[in-house]
C-alpha cells in the first residue's frame, strides 16, 4: 500500500461522502427513529406489535394491501408484455410513437392522473353521465370508492413501470431462435410460448417485483379513489397518525410494511437480478 494510492482512494471517498452522509443522517436515521418510536410509544415494549395478531381492522388492511398489489401486478404484467412485444416484434409502423406514449405518463404526476380517474369514474363523472345520457342506466353506477376504482387507476399508474423492464429485456433478444423454431415447423404460438417467452422471463420478473413493491406502499391513488373504503396500509397509517395521533400504532405498521417490502425483495432475489432491477436501471 503506497501512500499515493491511499490518498487517491481518500479523495474518491471525499466525493462520495457528502451525498452518503446526507442520506444516512437525514433519511436512514429518521427511519431508525421510526423503529424506535414503535417500541417506546405509548410505553416501552412490543405492545404495538401485539396488535398485528389482535386487531381485525389491521389484518383486513394488510389483506387488502397485498390483494390490490397482487392484482395490479398481474394486470400490469399482461398488458405491459403485450405492449412491449408489439414494440419489438409485431409493429412495423408507429414504434417511436408507441415508445413515446409509454413514457408520457412518467412525466405527468400521479396526482393529476388520479384526478383524471376521479373525473371519469365519479358519481356524476363522465362515464356515468355518458351511460345515463344514452339511457343505458337509470342511476349512477358506483365506479369508485371501491376496489374496482382503485385497481383501474393503480394499473394505469403502474403500467409504465412494468413496460420498461420488459422492453429493456426484449431489446437484447435475438429473433433467430424464434425464426429457427418457425423454420423447423413450429406454429407461431408454439415458437412464442416455448422459445421466445422463456427468454423474456428475467424482464417479466423484474417488472413484477418493481410493480408489486411500489404498489404495496402506494398512497395517493388508493387514498383518492378508495374514498376511505379501500384502506390500504399506507392510508391506514396516516389515519392512525393524523386522526388519532397514535404514533405507536402508526410507526409499528410502518416498520411492518417496511419489513414486508424487504422480505418480498429478498425472496425475489432468487429469481431477479436485483442489481439490474434497481441499481442499474436507466
Amino acid at each position: 500500500m503506497t501512500p499515493g494510492l491511499l490518498t487517491d482512494r481518500h479523495r474518491y471517498w471525499l466525493l462520495i461522502l457528502p451525498a452518503l452522509a446526507v442520506m444516512i443522517i437525514f433519511y436512514i436515521w429518521p427511519l431508525v427513529n421510526i423503529l424506535g418510536i414503535s417500541v417506546t410509544e405509548p410505553e416501552p415494549g412490543l405492545g404495538n406489535y401485539a396488535l398485528l395478531a389482535e386487531s381485525r381492522p389491521i389484518q383486513t388492511s394488510f389483506i387488502i394491501t397485498f390483494r390490490v398489489a397482487a392484482i395490479t401486478t398481474v394486470f400490469c404484467l399482461v398488458l405491459g408484455y403485450i405492449v412491449s412485444y408489439a414494440i419489438y416484434n409485431a409493429s412495423k409502423r408507429g414504434v417511436g410513437l408507441m415508445v413515446a406514449l409509454v413514457l408520457l405518463p412518467f412525466w405527468i404526476s400521479v396526482l393529476i392522473r388520479s384526478f383524471s380517474w376521479i373525473v371519469l369514474l365519479g358519481r356524476s363523472g363522465l362515464v356515468n353521465d355518458a351511460l345515463m345520457g344514452m339511457g343505458l342506466i337509470d342511476r349512477p353506477l358506483r365506479l369508485m370508492h371501491n376496489e374496482f376504482g382503485v385497481l383501474i387507476a393503480m394499473v394505469h399508474v403502474m403500467l409504465p413501470f412494468a413496460v420498461l423492464p420488459i422492453m429493456a429485456n426484449m431489446k437484447g433478444i435475438d429473433r433467430s431462435f424464434v425464426n429457427a423454431a418457425r423454420g423447423l415447423g413450429a406454429s407461431e404460438w408454439t415458437a412464442f410460448w416455448q422459445v421466445y417467452f422463456p427468454q423474456t422471463k428475467p424482464g417479466v420478473l423484474s417488472a413484477a417485483l418493481l410493480v408489486f413493491v411500489l404498489s404495496l406502499g402506494f398512497y395517493i391513488t388508493p387514498a383518492l379513489l378508495g374514498g376511505g373504503r379501500v384502506l390500504m396500509i399506507s392510508e391506514y397509517i396516516t389515519y392512525q397518525i393524523q386522526e388519532f395521533l397514535k404514533w405507536g400504532t402508526g410507526t409499528m405498521l410502518s416498520v411492518t410494511l417496511l419489513v414486508a417490502t424487504g422480505v418480498v425483495i429478498l425472496a425475489a432475489a432468487r429469481f431477479v437480478n436485483l442489481r439490474r432491477a434497481f441499481l442499474e436501471r436507466g
Binding site: 433519511y27 429518521p30 427511519l31 427513529n33 421510526i34 413493491v213 404495496l216 406502499g217 402506494f218 398512497y219 399506507s234 392510508e235 397509517i237 396516516t238 397518525i241 402508526g250 410507526t251 410502518s254 410494511l257 417496511l258 417490502t261 425483495i265 434497481f278
Partner: peptide
C-alpha cells in the same frame, strides 16, 4: 426508491 412514501414521511 424502495421505502413506501408514507413511511419515509413519518420519519
Amino acid at each position: 426508491i424502495l421505502v413506501p412514501p408514507v413511511v419515509q414521511s413519518l420519519g
